[in-house]
Amino acid sequence: MALSRMDDLYRQVILDHSDNPHHHGELPDATNNIELKNPTCGDVLKLDLNIEDGVIKDAAFSGYGCTISQASASMMTDAVIGKTTDDAEQMVQTFSNMIIGEDVDTDSLEDAAVLEGVSKFPARIKCATLAWKALHKAMNKEESE
């Protein structure tokens, strides 16, 4: 049955993150925040960051979206908390390259590396990248302000 191909996309760890997302909610004292919409599906992602001395001390997300976008946001927040913004930018780049099928070292992405399988589902790439786009924009918002 062709539905078995879904195992590549919906790995158990992805479903776990989607069912019980980490860092779901809001940060009342966020230094940086952003709300991104995916216009094709109407999904909304809000991301709050607490950045001190160039380090992401805390992160939280809210909004609504599909399994892939929710799991991706959960994994992304897990991976970037405690990282410097420079390292996080590097991770954004690594994730972007991975998701379009490029051969990259994905160790730094932690759980988020399992989203590699999304590259075989072009229609769902935007779902996976939304959280990382939000991270990039939220971090750069600070610099411009």
């Binding site: 062709a2 919906y10 599909c66 399994t67």
Partner: peptide, 15 residues
């Protein structure tokens, strides 16, 4: 409990 994009991907896998 399931986003329609996930549902549509499942249906697509079934043709």
């Amino acid at each position: 409990g399931l986003h329609p994009h996930d549902l549509a991907t499942g249906l697509d896998m079934e043709g």
